[in-house]
């Protein structure tokens, strides 16, 4: 193992890890927004919204994220959407993971027993008041863990933006593999950083999950 080489290049990997973290955070925020909107549509009273929500989930979960990213980044300019690679990465991956989060959020909401909704409605609360005061606080607690799984998947999927040349961890590893012919060492550097990010995120999710449990 070429330790000396690793010592020489690791600062570049650290920089790249920072890009990966930025990508992950922004993608997660966009994903959660899309997930909340998607879930709201899937659970809407109106059939049109339910259909749009279901189509969103089916199409974005049914095709490769890489292709979605390519359509946005390379095909975007044809329909007047000009994005740099980083922006395209955040939007492409965010909308993609939003489809998965839609199902997570919806799943948590519909798992709240029907009696909860009935009890709140019986007291005279409106649909929105019932959702906001009775259903959501319970569902939010159930969502933490599965959203953590989505988040773990999301962090790994940020590697896809290497294919549109965003200089994040996987792209950096690929470039140094090409120039040094040391695939194992470069994999090790990038891999350790990925695992640190994923481990830290996992701990944060577990902490949050414990925090929000009733009692």
């Amino acid at each position: 193992m070429d330790i000396e080489l690793m010592q020489r290049v690791y600062p570049f990997f650290l920089q790249a890890a920072w890009v990966t973290i930025q990508l992950s955070v922004l993608t997660a925020l966009l994903g959660l927004t899309c997930g909340a909107l998607g879930a709201a549509m899937r659970l809407s009273r109106l059939a049109v919204f339910r259909f749009i929500g279901a189509a969103y989930v089916s199409v974005f979960r049914g095709t490769p994220a890489l292709i979605q990213l390519f359509i946005l980044y390379f095909g975007g300019p044809q329909v007047g959407i000009q994005l740099d690679a980083f922006e395209a990465g955040v939007i492409g991956l965010g909308v993609n993971v939003g489809a998965y989060m839609t199902e997570t959020i919806r799943g948590a909401i519909i798992s709240i027993p029907k009696g909860q909704r009935e009890a709140a409605r019986t007291l005279g609360l409106s649909r929105w008041q019932t959702f906001y005061n009775a259903i959501l606080p319970q569902a939010a607690r159930l969502m933490v863990r599965p959203l953590g799984v989505n988040l773990n998947m999301l962090i790994k999927s940020t590697a896809l933006v290497a294919a549109i040349s965003v200089v994040e961890l996987t792209y950096t590893a690929q470039r140094y593999i090409g120039s040094t012919y040391k695939p194992f060492e470069m994999f090790l550097l990038a891999g350790i950083l990925y695992m640190i990010i994923i481990y830290a995120t996992g701990r944060a999710v577990a902490w949050l999950d414990r925090r929000v449990q009733i009692n």
């Binding site: 790994k156 999927s157 590697a159 896809l160 996987t170 695939p183 194992f184 994999f187 990038a190 695992m195």
Partner: peptide
């Protein structure tokens, strides 16, 4: 399980 598939593909292919 803790690293991206794409990175693993690079390792296997070039490795």
């Amino acid at each position: 399980m803790g690293t991206p598939l794409l990175l693993q593909l690079f390792l296997i292919y070039f490795g």
